[in-house]
Design a protein around this nucleic acid. Sequence first.
DNA 1: CCATGAATAT
DNA 2: AATATTCATG
Length: 456
Amino acid sequence: MAYDVVQALQGIYGMKDDYGLDPSAGLVPLGTSLLPPIVAQAFGLPSLGSLAPPPQPPPQQQYQALYGSMVNPALLGALGAFGGASQYQSQPHYGGLASTSALGYLQALAAAGQHQQQQQQQQQSAVALLAHTAALAAAARSAPASSSAFSQPMQPPTAADYCSHPAYSSARAVACELERAATASATTSGPSGMKGPTFSNSAGSAPYQHPLMQNLYTAALAQQQQQSAYGVGQGMSPYASHFPGYYARPDTSAAVAAAAVAAAAGAYGYGQAPSVSYGAYHPSYSSGPALDYSALAAAYRPAMSAPAAPTASINPQSQSICDDEYADDGSARAIKRPRLVWTPQLHKKFESAVLKLGDEKAVPKNIMQEMNIDGLTRENVASHLQKYRMSRKHGRDGSSIDCRDSDTVTIGSKREPEPIRPTPILAQPPGAAKAACGAGASSEQIANGGSLGARD
DNA sequence: CCATGAATAT
DNA sequence: AATATTCATG
């Protein structure tokens, strides 16, 4: 059961109601430094930035553009508070966090922000301040040599920045810090009558993996970037379309943030390794750079001595972008495993393993061992086996399981049978550019003899 | 506690 | 639809 933040904070602030859909509501608590000057001006808020306001369209239009395309989708989308929210965004862990509570939380924060603007009352801005402070600290810590997205929020990054700017490698750190700060402050705001929020976490493992602040941050970052895009063109970041799947909102600037993170990851070499694979993981349901199978497999090995690069949680299923944080001992903490794609090659191996083992022994674990594919899990096999068996039951032989390459659309006679590729090609959405900044996946993977590294 | 497989979720 | 995750069961 989700903690009723609305009620609690209303109690504290005496907030009545109806900050609800005020477009400014979501903006305020995120820190005025993140406000586009236009918005700040429009609402009489202090504009802390130095970025010259873009040529001003008629006010109405401005709000329309800002709130229509930016604020609402970004914030509301990030909150997943409304019907249009992405189905992929919600995680089982979020289950108990009622959307009304999410919205209420925003409302409350908005209220706090407004109070803060009017009369610097510590208590009321505690959440925002704490979060901001923590964010700054985190940013400083993880990107000491350069400015972070937070420390210089008004600096419009260049295109190259999105790829190479260390700030984005710290994006998650910042977000995590935000997340932590928010939950922590929410938890410790007891004096004001707040009880510790019992945000539902079905796993019960990470009590303070509070998605809300993460989402807020994402929205904030998206705003910031959108705002930066003023000078670049349409007001849409050029990267928005590269990873349409991340938040399942291709048009949402929230995707930009994800793209930035993903780009940062790409810069570290993930997603472009040239090696052969029977199967492959792809980071998104709908799109994204191809992740090299073996690289991933390696990445999953906790003990690996690879650079502690942000193996960004470029996975939309990721419960929290903090998932890939590193524990004190340097070992990687739970990284969400990307979705496996059963390529024809992989399926072949699967099938031959099944046949070889025979009906009796063809159980997931055995099959997995027989296949001897690095990184392949029992769950992977079990799931595929389930489908395989179903497929058989319904008349067809298992080999008819349609494990085509994900960029192949084979319907009717429209197209010739796809040649079996030596390497799996991962989904490339129709409109998606190859990869942001050229660092992402390409289809240029090179066969190297056909065997995935034997595992172990 | 672990593996399995069906059911269910994403 | 494909794959992942959950859950009851052995």
